[in-house]
Amino acid sequence: MENFTWNSDTVQVEGLKVTQVSVYPVFFFFLLSYILIISANIGILVVIFIDKNLHQPMYLLFCNMPINDIIGSTNIMPRLLSDILRPPSERLISYYECVLQAFTSHMFGTAAYTILMIMAFDRYVAICNPLRYAAIMTNNIVAMLTMSAWGTAFVLVGILLGLTIRLNRCRTVITNPYCDNPSIFKLSCESVFINNIYGLTFTVVLLTASIGSIVLTYGKITAVCVTSKSKSLNSKALKTCSTHLMSYMIMFFCGMLIVILHRFPQLSDYRKLSAILFHVIPGSLNPVIYGVQSKEIRTFLSKLIQPRKVS
């Protein structure tokens, strides 16, 4: 279905190439993954909301992560599940719905990095300036950090998609399991030089800023831990920083895999799968990582699980 109609209001999503034998196993795998992501992340949010001991800047900033994971998975998974059960010719979506899905998808990926950056700042203040932590990390600062993380992502992605929707379209097939910016501007027969330049600049700036913030904050945290003789401080730094760093590395490698596979058209099937896993793996692992590492969350959950003693 490669109709050369100009600015068609409907486009076809190529989706995953799934054989008849593997349709239902693949469907149930992604369905269970989606249920796990939603239930685990909502569970973490409920725990933080209920337990007043968790009403601390670290956990309030962390709340942005499960919210982002819920948005990211809900943006693609329900439609992906329905498309798996449909023949390719019926995987149709309106162009403007496709743009909205692409915007939300890139918001998810960008916000994941900006949220991890503000969390790195919180860890830096907590470990390097523990006596001033309460004075620095006030509710207003937490709110400002949260708005800056989402606001920065919104502006960057808004420009990214704005440059794409200005293009006329002469194709109608999205060569991806869901709509994203590269697959949308590939619908155009016009020059996409500006789109490629901004997309490359966007990626470089985001990765440089995120890696730079991680290196800077963790370098100072490491220096404090090396010079400090406090075992409790070093233990706290190791637990909180290892959790944060693990989440960052998972997101970084999942994102870089997509960027690398985009350069190899012959590996399009692997690129499609990696694009879906980018929304599945971090959202599935983040609640587990933070739930296991956080003593406060473990304590709250243990109280719920342990049966009450009968007097």
Results as ranks from 00 to 15, higher is better:
residue 59 Y to A: 06
residue 148 S to Y: 11
residue 48 I to W: 01
residue 134 A to V: 05
residue 141 I to W: 06
residue 235 S to V: 01
residue 23 V to Y: 10
residue 49 F to C: 12
residue 28 F to L: 11
residue 71 I to M: 15
residue 190 E to P: 04
residue 50 I to N: 10
residue 278 F to E: 04
residue 294 S to C: 14
residue 55 H to Y: 02
residue 16 L to K: 06
residue 248 Y to Q: 08
residue 233 L to F: 10
residue 212 G to E: 03
residue 74 T to S: 15
residue 199 G to K: 05
residue 28 F to R: 04
residue 145 L to H: 03
residue 292 V to S: 00
residue 266 Q to N: 12
residue 51 D to T: 00
residue 87 P to S: 06
residue 257 L to Q: 03
residue 270 Y to R: 01
residue 256 M to G: 12
residue 231 K to A: 12
residue 112 A to I: 03
residue 69 D to S: 14
residue 205 V to M: 13
residue 146 T to L: 10
residue 137 M to Q: 12
residue 81 L to I: 01
residue 246 M to L: 12
residue 94 S to T: 13
residue 106 H to M: 14
residue 147 M to Q: 09
residue 293 Q to E: 06
residue 1 M to A: 15
residue 247 S to H: 06
residue 63 C to E: 13
residue 176 N to A: 15
residue 254 C to I: 03
residue 129 N to Y: 15
residue 116 L to V: 02
residue 203 T to M: 03
residue 233 L to H: 08
residue 240 T to Y: 07
residue 265 P to H: 10
residue 274 S to N: 04
residue 47 V to S: 07
residue 232 S to I: 04
residue 250 I to T: 08
residue 39 S to P: 02
residue 120 A to V: 02
residue 178 Y to V: 00
residue 228 S to H: 13
residue 164 T to A: 01
residue 101 Q to P: 06
residue 88 P to N: 07
residue 19 T to S: 15
residue 174 I to T: 01
residue 181 N to E: 14
residue 136 I to Y: 12
residue 104 T to K: 14
residue 192 V to W: 00
residue 78 P to E: 07
residue 154 F to H: 06
residue 243 T to D: 09
residue 4 F to H: 15
residue 259 V to L: 13
residue 40 A to S: 15
residue 278 F to K: 03
residue 250 I to W: 14
residue 244 H to S: 09
residue 109 G to L: 07
residue 164 T to C: 01
residue 108 F to E: 00
residue 36 L to E: 10
residue 305 I to K: 13
residue 238 L to K: 15
residue 192 V to F: 00
residue 299 T to P: 00
residue 309 K to V: 09
residue 65 M to R: 02
residue 290 Y to F: 15
residue 153 A to V: 02
residue 41 N to Q: 07
residue 107 M to E: 05
residue 195 N to Y: 04
residue 164 T to K: 00
residue 234 N to L: 06
residue 98 C to L: 11
residue 94 S to D: 10
residue 302 S to L: 06
residue 200 L to N: 09
residue 98 C to E: 04
residue 243 T to V: 02
residue 102 A to W: 12
residue 39 S to I: 13
residue 170 C to N: 14
residue 36 L to A: 14
residue 168 N to V: 03
residue 85 L to P: 11
residue 125 V to N: 11
residue 68 N to V: 03
residue 224 V to E: 15
residue 21 V to G: 02
residue 295 K to V: 14
residue 257 L to P: 00
residue 186 K to Q: 14
residue 253 F to L: 09
residue 188 S to A: 08
residue 99 V to G: 00
